[in-house]
């Protein structure tokens, strides 16, 4: 398997603050990776470095290229939505399609028009006349019609209602993704992407705090609901996190065998959001 993203000791500093403090990454083709972290953890800096929008220290190659010095060549194979609502306000739907068709060799007008047919967008509409959701719809239609090897989505569904968000991820999975493509996605709506991810990366204070496949995550983390009399025994096993519901404690463990925990109470596989919250404790303190 060829590496799509390879980083070693990736650092990025803005003045005195170091936003990224030595990130190591290795992502293969055919993955959908969630890059998840609290605000200010360095997510955006890592993504910007990957897309050639900023310089960096350390090693970073995307599809074998240095993104900072070879951005325009790299963009043949990489697509990104770096931020919502970055389409120029004066452009019309028709013009945006003609533009991307003209400059991008891997763009398919037919695909783009098929995506747009499902929306309210009309060819003559200008971005400035659109709602925030419509702008995102246009941007996604343009980007998903490009047959890229790597797609980077930074908060792609911000400002969209829940119906469209579900639909978007479904489309992404069914009509866009295949084993040769790689998708890196960041979002705060962790629950919504959980089921489509193959891998997950947690980033905290500029370093990768967790890197695992979804299967690994399921076998590593366990959540137990423990009655009050068992609590002492449960705490002895060093849970990552504890919260209480109706007088019972819910404890989350990393790397403790499930058989051992079954004895303490009812076990289940925690959601990605629960693991995220547990591992990020103390971020804002």
């Amino acid at each position: 398997m060829s590496k799509v993203i390879e980083a070693r000791g990736l650092r990025k500093r803005y003045g005195k603050t170091e936003a990224v403090k030595g990130v190591d990454l290795s992502i293969e083709a055919g993955k959908i990776v969630g890059l998840i972290g609290p605000n200010g953890a360095g997510k955006t800096s890592v993504l910007k470095a990957m897309l050639g929008l900023t310089d960096f220290d350390g090693e970073l190659t995307i599809l074998g290229r240095n993104p900072h010095t070879e951005r325009h060549a790299l963009m043949q194979d990489v697509c990104f939505i770096a931020d919502v609502a970055v389409l120029p306000r004066w452009i019309r739907v028709r013009e945006a399609i003609e533009y991307v068709e003209g400059v991008h060799p891997r763009f398919s007008r037919a695909k783009c028009e098929a995506f747009l047919a499902k929306t309210q967008l009309k060819p003559e509409m200008r971005v400035r006349e659109m709602s925030k959701g419509m702008i995102v719809q246009l941007h996604l239609a343009l980007v998903m019609a490009i047959d890229a090897k790597l797609l980077v989505l930074d908060e792609p569904t911000l400002g969209l209602d829940v119906l469209y968000r579900k639909d978007f991820y479904q489309t992404l999975l069914n009509d866009y993704f295949d084993h040769e493509k790689t998708i890196v996605v960041t979002t705060h709506q962790v629950e919504e992407i959980e089921h489509i991810l193959t891998d997950v990366l947690f980033i905290k204070d500029g370093v990768i705090s967790l890197s695992a496949t979804m299967e690994e995550l399921g076998s590593r983390f366990t959540e137990v609901m423990v009655p009050a009399n068992q609590r002492e025994a449960a705490l002895a096993l060093k849970p990552l996190d504890e919260r209480s519901v109706f007088g019972k404690s819910i404890l989350l463990y990393d790397g403790v065998p499930r058989e051992q925990l079954d004895a303490l109470g009812e076990t289940r596989t925690p959601g990605l959001a629960d693991i995220f919250v547990a591992t990020m404790k103390g971020t804002y303190q």
């Binding site: 897309l51 929008l53 325009h72 963009m75 931020d83 970055v86 389409l87 120029p88 060799p105 941007h139």
Partner: peptide, 20 residues
Amino acid sequence: DERKDRSVLFWKSMPVSDVQ
């Protein structure tokens, strides 16, 4: 203007060099 309205992020997502 493209930096002010952030549309430069869109233009830069296209395979067009800055010289071009």
